[in-house]
Design a protein around this nucleic acid. Sequence first.
DNA 1: ACATAATCGAGACGGTACGTCAGGTCTTCCC
DNA 2: GGGAAGACCTGACGTACCGTCTCGATTATGT
Lengths: 174, 174, 174, 174
Amino acid sequence: MTSGRPRDEGVRRNILTATQALVLEKGYAAVTTTEIAARAGAGKQTIYRWWPGKGALVLDAFSSWVEQAPRTARRRPSLSSTLVEFCRAATHAAPVLRALMAEAQFDPALHARLLAQLVRPRGDELRACLTDRRAADRELVVNVLSGLVWQRLMLNEPLDGRFVRFALRVVGRI
Amino acid sequence: MTSGRPRDEGVRRNILTATQALVLEKGYAAVTTTEIAARAGAGKQTIYRWWPGKGALVLDAFSSWVEQAPRTARRRPSLSSTLVEFCRAATHAAPVLRALMAEAQFDPALHARLLAQLVRPRGDELRACLTDRRAADRELVVNVLSGLVWQRLMLNEPLDGRFVRFALRVVGRI
Amino acid sequence: MTSGRPRDEGVRRNILTATQALVLEKGYAAVTTTEIAARAGAGKQTIYRWWPGKGALVLDAFSSWVEQAPRTARRRPSLSSTLVEFCRAATHAAPVLRALMAEAQFDPALHARLLAQLVRPRGDELRACLTDRRAADRELVVNVLSGLVWQRLMLNEPLDGRFVRFALRVVGRI
Amino acid sequence: MTSGRPRDEGVRRNILTATQALVLEKGYAAVTTTEIAARAGAGKQTIYRWWPGKGALVLDAFSSWVEQAPRTARRRPSLSSTLVEFCRAATHAAPVLRALMAEAQFDPALHARLLAQLVRPRGDELRACLTDRRAADRELVVNVLSGLVWQRLMLNEPLDGRFVRFALRVVGRI
DNA sequence: ACATAATCGAGACGGTACGTCAGGTCTTCCC
DNA sequence: GGGAAGACCTGACGTACCGTCTCGATTATGT
């Protein structure tokens, strides 16, 4: 039996939208929950009712945004195209990704969420491009690529075409 | 011509020691500059006179600690032994390294310091083990290894023997 | 040994002045500590460092204000003139006095402060006008007068000339 | 024409009972409407439908409780017995009475209710004991007694036998 | 010797975000 | 329409930490 007033989906969307907009405008660190609430026309309590804090909120706001790939999986996508798309999206969202990964280092719960919503799905995507490899090799390649990308992000270096070529060259050697 | 009271080296050491102790006890995030000053028997101003903030202070406190290997470089050290030592030290200091890299994402100045004092020196160390490779390959290997290690740290996975073997296997394939 | 930066008296006065002004402008209940801090150009913490809360702060701001009687005690002041002056001051400050006494009902510490800083001094003043009475009668009269005044305040009835005459008639009968 | 479901008297009694219990357990200030609703097995809206707020609710809950004296008025009751009964009841309910009078200072509507339901009825009771006095004297005595009692309450001093004797001595002198 | 100048411990200060709490309203379904 | 449940907006609260500042005391150099 579900009694009481149901959660207002419009409010939820307003909050996520406001979060996205504000984080893009001013950067993760400069945004406050109070400000998000104000922009969303919501109460602060409503935010804290549904998210444990700024980190989780921003993660939600951007994980839906990052996953905008329609995934019209015809056949197995190529590794290179996947990687290109991967880097394109990551470049756009780079400041947010860096901030989220950083924040996650101070917040175990956020760390788990980040893994489940961002890190693992992207790894799985890569893995799906490697069905022609032996299982052990697959893990190896996925780890190396993921490591290269995240390191690049954290060191604030560009995820551009040069990087993609570099990464593919590495993979080719394995 | 330098007049005025000279810097007290004992105070500097007290502060670094107190920082180390407190960060190990309670973790980076839970420590405050005020607390460090109190423990060191120092004034807050003395800290801010010599360091720009908590991040740089902790970096100093631990970069001297991480690099305590005397580096009795006879000849070129082996890659595997270097990597093992590397991981051993990183495992001990893992929570601090994670926190520093995280904090650096919000603080460009700290980011630069971190690169200069921790990331690059370790990369150079690795590079020095690869003098038998072609220059292009060297960069490739250093990048991959560094990426694997930092990713491992940020994802809070162990830098144990299994990881070392895994990393060496990757390098062997390149 | 008094070390450290000494308390800034100017800040203290700014806070008290801002408190007074705001309470007179908008009434006790509508004023917040945040607002007082902003108006005084002070930090909220500075307020909480020196006062336990809004109540004590307002009490301080107005107890110095209520006691503006120069007390050029030549001889024993007459009861009637004291009572007139008393009511004049209380009429002005009535909303604040009501609010303070009300707040004190929820806050034992404020209650004690209120007694010590406002209630008892005023009682002593009245007592000083009754040196020609027997001690027991003195207490009786002081209690009755004080009771009449506070009741009047709490019931939000005017402390005007009519009330003074009424009160004096009562005392005359005792 | 009154259509729709009629008010549920059982719910009303549950709410008043829960209010009484909670206020006696934890004190007026520590009780919230949400809590009262929960204890009464009622919805918050049901409370706000019938009472303007916590103050009025508590007033109702206790005014029926304070006036539980059956008032078997044979003839004119004596002043002293009335005062004794008065103080006995007030002593029991002292914390609630203090809180209500305090709250009323911030809430004009509650102030009016408090006067009508508690202050004036008690005054009338006293007045009824003084039919042998001249009208002007009656008001005087009622005011003095009422003032003494409320002052005593607000200053958190006991309304015990000693106080009653004191009050009667005052009245005797008038 | 004595002024100059910088360091040091202590702690007050302005500022800003935090997460919590209570009040009172609104929205659902059920009777 | 009454009622239970509970989401919602609003706005104050008191705390925490940051980095700066202002004291008095100390310790070096330069005259």
